[in-house]
């Protein structure tokens, strides 16, 4: 387990410590969280309070699974953008998944997401984790187009 530097979470998410001190602990974020619709039993409020107390751990399931749906933000009395706090946590703890790595690598090379490149980078994940069975339904999504290279500043 790795402790996260909470100062960096504030820097990345653009929040200050006092922004989380107003969290009333009402847990409405948990009651509307998309992941709880399918019984994942997650509580986004735990993340806010632990960052406020300065001892957050990067093993919280939301770090991997938050879908960035913003239902928590929409319901929160303080409109705290929890998905953005979680993304900061994820970035700092370097919990990047293969998809995120392929995505960033494409941006580095092309300046855009060039899907054929991302698919190639992800090919072993697609093979190993059973995505191949979806390919017949994905035919309309595949197209051969040349990449555009965005000019560097």
């Amino acid at each position: 387990m790795q402790m996260i530097d909470t100062e960096k979470v504030f820097e990345y998410s653009g929040y200050k410590k006092e922004d989380f001190s107003v969290c009333l602990g009402c847990k409405i974020c948990a009651s509307v969280c998309t992941l709880n619709d399918i019984g994942e039993n997650v509580n986004p409020q735990e993340i806010l309070i632990s960052i406020f107390l300065g001892k957050v751990l990067n093993t919280h399931p939301l770090v991997r699974l938050c879908t960035s749906c913003y239902r928590c933000t929409d319901s929160c009395p303080w409109s705290i953008r929890i998905p953005e706090v979680i993304r900061a946590l994820k970035e700092i703890s370097q919990k990047e998944e293969s998809f995120g790595k392929a995505f960033r690598s494409s941006i580095k090379i092309f300046g855009r997401i060039y899907e054929p490149y991302v698919i190639l980078k992800l090919s072993s994940v697609l093979l190993r984790k059973g995505y191949i069975k979806f390919f017949p339904k994905w035919i309309e999504y595949f197209s051969l187009h040349l990449p555009h290279f965005v000019r560097r500043d």
């Binding site: 990345y12 998410s13 960035s68 993304r87 994820k90 700092i92 941006i107 300046g111």
Partner: peptide, 23 residues
């Protein structure tokens, strides 16, 4: 012309995302 990726939700640093879109 020559637009770049908006960064989607793949970056944790909010100012980095904003600077990508500002370009």
């Amino acid at each position: 012309p020559d637009w770049n990726c908006c960064g989607a939700v793949e970056y944790g640093d909010a100012s980095e995302i904003r600077s990508m879109s500002r370009k």
